[in-house]
Computed example of a mutant assay.
Amino acid sequence: MHLKEKPVLEVKHLSVRYGEGCEACRSSLEKNRCPVCGTVWAANDISLEVYHGEVLGIVGESGSGKSTLMRCLYLDIEPTGGSAFFKDYKSGRTSIWDVSAAEKRRVRNHLMGMVYQNPILGLRMDFTSSANIAEKLIAAGERDAGAMTGRATELLEAVEIPSSRMKEPPRVFSGGMQQRVQISRALANHPSLLLLDEVTTGLDLSVQAKVLDLIRKIRAKYGVSILLVSHDLAVIRMLADRTVVMLDGKIVESGLTDQILEDPQHAYTQQLVHSLI
């Protein structure tokens, strides 16, 4: 279905290692650690694409490399090797990991929105909800107070935060409401890609369902592409068009979500799917 379409994001051969690396790293890793030199490969030759309007799910256990991938994409950490190209940045010809700090800030503020598992990482808890959105707009160069107020109101309404509570700080909100404020902030600058990192973990089941339903509505309304990281296959089943399965810093399986859940090929994926049944 994507034969001629250029992906919104293309990641090629991402690696993140902690240690010098050696020849033995090529063939002798125990899980993601080299027994010879002790180097840990948090991400090991990861390549993937995300297309316009799709949800790409990334699933795997703790330590599989999911969060490392997300932090590299959001420019929180520097990869050891690899490239990442955005269609909307320099026509997709320059890797976002190879540009200046000022350009990285521009990419981060204009092209991506990030929703963290822990809202404390993604929100200023003592700012009002509106001010959290305004801060993201200001970072991208917006200076018109009226425009910022209008955008904040539009986005908070889209995530079902009542207008009567827009001037309240997120610290007084429930976990589910904090995630909704994070989502509205992440959407502030019309990003090409929304990064969702374990956004329902720790929430009550009824709240999880509301947040997942909201993500579906946001995708339908704004047509934004989403990279969705989760260890929960039920979440992936509900939202993802395609899924990538990670283990020990590597991609071990990828394909249409339905195919992966109905006919998993890799032993680890089979184990994950069977634990769902």
Rank of each mutant, 00 (worst) to 15 (best):
R71W: 04
M112A: 04
I77A: 10
C72N: 13
E160S: 15
A147P: 09
M70G: 10
M148Y: 12
N132E: 05
Y51V: 01
A42W: 09
G150N: 05
R185E: 09
L3V: 14
R17C: 10
A140Q: 01
E30L: 15
H231Y: 06
V172G: 09
E262S: 10
A42P: 12
Q259Y: 01
Q208S: 11
Q117T: 05
G223W: 02
E160D: 14
A102S: 12
S174Q: 09
D241L: 05
S130G: 12
I96N: 11
L193A: 11
V159A: 00
Q208L: 10
A186I: 02
F173T: 10
D232L: 03
T80I: 07
V99F: 01
G60E: 04
L212F: 05
V59Q: 03
D88P: 07
L187S: 08
E23L: 15
N189R: 04
H52G: 13
M177P: 14
G38L: 08
D76E: 14
P119D: 07
R124Y: 14
R180S: 07
L156H: 11
G82R: 01
A220I: 00
R93W: 03
T257A: 08
E253R: 02
M238V: 13
V8L: 03
K90V: 07
A24S: 14
A234S: 12
G141D: 08
V199D: 00
K12V: 15
G21I: 04
L187A: 11
I215A: 01
L256S: 10
H52S: 15
A43P: 01
E78N: 05
G122M: 09
T68F: 03
E20K: 14
A140F: 00
G150F: 03
G82I: 04
K217G: 00
Y116D: 05
S91T: 06
G38A: 10
G57H: 05
P7T: 02
H110Y: 04
E5Y: 11
E10N: 14
V224N: 04
L187C: 12
